[in-house]
């Protein structure tokens, strides 16, 4: 039997105090750990900005590099990254969305679906440098694209494909079943239902995934270092079969392989600032779209 203390003594603050101390301790511990992510980001940003802000100027983002990269800007580098990521998205979004439609709407549970899903998960777990080697072997050498914008974009597209598939699939699955039912009950075919009701409803979600995917791709170094990136090109590429400069690779090369590693430190950090701004900007855009969509959503 429990001794249930029904006297007023039990309400005295002795127990409460002890509890409060424990509560307080764990609460502050959780708070600290919770903020560690934000603090890390803040420290990184501060560090990069402190080391690179001196080179930031209008010329820095509009002029090509000069005098063995020790002066001038990084315009072709920015353009290279924009071209690589845009082309990559152009390739990967249709394939990813169609695959997601197949998985979310048409596939039936079973061996087929399981193996497709397994492949996608595995593909997502492959290290990015392996994609780089694959791109080198297949697109650069075997298909003879050379180190080029095209080879790099396709390699990046393959790398980001699982991500685009899974975000699109989630967006499609988030569309309520009742919308599909309503459409079918109106005498729509399955494809009409997907095209006119499911896809438009899922579009903001798909778009958010694509933007976050673009942000991810724009910072990748390993997949492009064997397939697309050049240390120096005289301008922006004039065809798909020319190599390009790219922000992450530019930082890597200046920091490790250049002839003026020390002199170009500020430029390295300046380039990093541009890359971070690009990525954060895209993430912000993704978040804004998601918030807008959440506000609008009433089902």
């Amino acid at each position: 039997m429990y001794n249930i203390d029904t006297t007023k003594e039990s309400f005295k603050k002795v127990h409460k105090k002890k509890r409060n101390i424990r509560q307080g301790f764990f609460l502050s511990l959780i708070r600290m750990l919770g903020f560690s992510g934000a603090i890390t980001l803040f420290v990184i940003l501060l560090f990069v900005f402190y080391n690179g802000f001196q080179v930031l100027s209008w010329e820095f983002i509009t002029q090509p590099p000069l005098e063995a990269m020790t002066r001038g800007g990084i315009f072709p580098v920015i353009m290279g990254t924009i071209l690589l990521t845009s082309l990559c998205m152009l390739i990967v979004i249709p394939i990813g969305v169609v695959t997601a439609i197949f998985l979310a709407e048409y596939s039936k549970p079973g061996y087929m679906l399981k193996s497709v899903m397994m492949s996608i998960y595995t593909l997502a777990g492959v290290p990015s440098v392996v994609f780089g080697l694959f791109g080198l072997g297949v697109f650069v050498v075997m298909l003879n694209f050379g180190m080029s914008l095209l080879a790099g974009s396709i390699t990046l597209a393959i790398m980001i494909l699982p991500y685009i598939i899974s975000t699109s699939e989630e967006a499609l699955k988030a569309v309520p079943y009742s919308f599909r039912e309503a459409s079918l009950a109106c005498g729509a075919t399955k494809w009409q239902t997907i095209r006119k009701v499911v896809l438009p409803t899922a579009m903001p979600g798909i778009l958010t995934g694509a933007i976050l995917g673009t942000a991810k791709v724009s910072g990748e170094t390993a997949p492009i270092m064997f397939t697309a990136a050049a240390f120096f090109t005289s301008g922006i590429p004039r065809s798909l079969f020319e190599p390009v400069m790219a922000l992450p690779y530019h930082i890597y090369v200046l920091a490790t392989a250049g002839t003026h590693i020390e002199e170009t430190r500020p430029i390295q950090y300046g380039t990093a600032i541009v890359l971070i701004t690009l990525v954060l900007g895209m993430n912000l855009l993704g978040i804004i779209i998601r918030l807008k969509q959440r506000k609008k959503r009433a089902w």
């Binding site: 309520p176 039912e181 309503a182 009701v197 609008k296 089902w299």
Partner: peptide, 10 residues
């Protein structure tokens, strides 16, 4: 068909 929960399209 009309369903239990009103389900207009968005």
């Amino acid at each position: 068909m009309v369903f239990q929960k009103p389900n207009p399209f968005p």
